[in-house]
């Protein structure tokens, strides 16, 4: 069935630790759907053929007298309970309760806005600097970072460029500056709405690097196109183009990228943003 769903559009890979579980419950649900549809369909077509008026001119007042349908309803109910208790609720509980807090996890803030994703790293001190709406400048300082504050000096932010290491728990604090957006990493089976006035944790652990992905999709329609951040919630006229890019590195590659960004920061603030605005 997994193969069937994949033939029917589902990506052939899932690039996070929770991806296989989410694909799995989708597959189970589709098995149940397929069985019911084929079962009902077969019964339906058979009766349409067998009980047509020309073949069966006199209808039977009593009709069917079996309790088969009651059993069917009970069976569907039981399967749904199994899907709920065995799969859906545990997966959900893990999603919202197992947010990694330890030193091994990488903490990143993501701030949605019309129509871009701002990515904010705390820098070497590991603490996010202060933010103020009064400091927001759409070109120089889209998240309103207060550079004069102690923890803010080493913070890095990018626009539409999320870099993370593979096989490492990532803890994203998701928020938005304006309207509701939905932070979506299709290949990782991650999706979470960004709600104004709230900061919502999103966590995942990638299992595939960008290089591995590019290898995987050779010869398919998306050849050469790496991971992306999509917006799934209507957020205005630019909703369709609210796309970010995500690069998944090996750990050393990620650290090299961070060091490079740090270097830009120490060189001079002025022309940093230009690099990020490209693309």
């Amino acid at each position: 069935m997994l193969e069937l769903l994949r033939y029917f559009g589902l990506p052939t890979f899932s690039a996070s630790t929770q991806g296989p579980a989410i694909d799995n419950i989708n597959v189970l649900a589709h098995w149940l759907m397929a069985l019911l549809f084929v079962g009902w369909g077969a019964f339906f077509i058979y009766t349409l053929f067998r009980f047509r008026a020309s073949k069966n001119p006199k209808a039977n007042y009593q009709g069917i007298r079996s309790h088969f349908s009651s059993y069917l309803e009970v069976v569907i109910g039981v399967i749904e309970v199994v899907l709920l208790l065995g799969f859906a609720i545990p997966i959900w509980a893990s999603r919202v309760n197992d947010v990694p807090k330890g030193p091994d996890a990488i903490h990143i803030r993501v701030v949605g806005q019309q129509f871009a994703w701002n990515i904010h790293y705390p820098g070497p001190d590991g603490v996010f600097g202060a933010i103020s709406v009064d400091l927001v400048d759409e070109v120089e300082n889209p998240i309103g970072l207060d550079r004069s504050e102690e923890f803010a000096k080493d913070d890095i932010f990018t626009v539409n460029q999320l870099h993370i290491p593979v096989n490492t728990p990532i803890n994203i604090s998701l928020s938005t500056k304006d309207v509701i957006h939905s932070f979506t990493l299709t290949e990782l089976r991650v999706k979470q709405d960004a709600i104004p006035g709230m900061e919502i944790p999103v966590w995942f652990e990638a299992t595939m690097t960008t290089d591995e992905l590019l290898e995987e999709i050779k010869g398919t329609a998306r050849e050469g196109r790496g991971f992306e951040i999509a917006c799934a919630q209507l957020c205005g006229l630019g909703h369709y183009r609210m796309k970010g890019f995500m690069t998944i590195h090996e750990m050393d590659g990620y650290e090299a990228w961070l060091a490079e960004e740090q270097e830009y920061l120490s060189e001079e603030e002025e022309d940093d943003w230009e690099d990020d605005w490209e693309d």
Partner: peptide, 15 residues
């Protein structure tokens, strides 16, 4: 059915 199961809905929501 898959949309009503929150875990499956993570992937399918708003698609």
């Amino acid at each position: 059915l898959p949309l009503g199961l929150a875990a499956a809905d993570i992937y399918l929501h708003d698609t």
